[in-house]
């Protein structure tokens, strides 16, 4: 079976005058996958999404969605996608339902039942003026307008911003359902646990350039792991010089190591010590990723 891509970018570059937005981005999003799009503030995530929507045209390079060029076929593409913008701006003096009617009108009629379902699910009163909505309610309205027409592709720029924990969970459940129904999700987020839970793969962008695209599991495996040991009694520092492990922390009977080398020789060395308990906390995406959020060292190539 040939692999199908929902999104393919080719050397995608966008400069705002002389200010770099993104540069030379080559990204392939598989049909049906949930791809996390991560990166520090100002890395170029929103810029990338705005190019996808033809709100911005690339300085050079191109992007194809469903095999169609974003500049020439933007309307056709938008028929099949839903978008939650990073900075949501709504018409304040309309009611929630009126705003959805307006946006729905661009897609022809229909979607009424799904809107009702989603509004109930997210507990949003569509009869009130947007002006009277709280931050989280506005975010819910943005979710509704992105999902109401049951699109094939979802472009989400920090979609859970302002949602309370319960609603965040509801949103994750919705995304998981959509994923199971074969929808493609492009999720830009700063919440690493959210990405870890939802995404199969992640792409990391930094200073406008894509620095990594990989599976979440592979990333976690690649990460050096830690080992916690609780000793029966206090152990001297000289006894803790173990092969293939670097001492991170020593507090009384509690010790933390960074595991680097061969685990077999390490365990053999540990066995000689008065161990009460031993634990290998699972590496989180957070630990695996945080290094990408550090500013690049002076003069270093990214």
């Amino acid at each position: 079976m040939a692999t199908n891509y929902a999104i393919v970018t080719q050397d995608l570059t966008k400069f705002y005058g002389r200010q770099r937005g993104i540069e030379g981005v080559n990204l392939r999003v598989l049909e049906g996958e949930v791809l996390g799009f991560l990166g520090p503030n100002g890395a170029g995530k929103t810029t990338t999404l705005r190019v996808f929507l033809d709100l911005l045209r690339p300085t050079s390079g191109s992007a194809r969605i469903f095999g169609l060029d974003t500049q020439r076929h933007d309307v056709e593409i938008k028929r099949r996608l839903g978008n939650i913008p990073g900075d949501i701006a709504l018409y304040e003096s309309l009611k929630g339902s009126e705003l959805l009617d307006l946006l729905g009108s661009f897609r022809g009629r229909g979607g009424g039942r799904r809107i009702k379902e989603l509004a109930e699910r997210f507990d949003l009163d569509l009869g009130r003026q947007v002006r009277a909505y709280s931050r989280g309610m506005k975010q819910k309205l943005a979710i509704l307008q992105a999902f109401m027409h049951d699109p094939e592709l979802l472009l989400l720029d920090e979609p859970t911003l302002g949602l309370d924990p319960l609603m965040q969970r509801e949103f994750y459940a919705l995304l998981a359902e959509e994923h199971n129904r074969g929808k493609t999700v492009f999720l830009s987020s700063h919440i690493l646990s959210e990405v870890e839970r939802l995404c199969g793969r992640v792409a990391i962008i930094k200073e406008g350039r894509l620095v990594l695209v990989d599976e979440v599991e592979a990333l976690k495996r690649r990460k050096v792991r830690k080992m916690h040991i609780h000793f029966r009694r206090e152990v001297g520092k000289e006894d803790l010089r173990l092969p293939g492990a670097e001492l991170l922390r020593l507090e009384g009977q509690e010790v933390e190591f960074l595991m680097k080398g061969d685990i077999q020789t390490l365990l053999a060395a540990v066995a000689r010590l008065p161990v009460e308990d031993i634990a290998f906390p699972e590496a989180t995406l957070e630990e695996a990723f945080l290094e990408f959020y550090q500013p690049a060292p002076e003069g270093a190539a990214v």
Partner: peptide, 14 residues
């Protein structure tokens, strides 16, 4: 300026 254009142009309209 307000950003409402982004909302409109998230949907299939020229």
């Amino acid at each position: 300026d307000r950003g409402t254009i982004e909302l409109l142009l998230s949907h299939p309209v020229q």
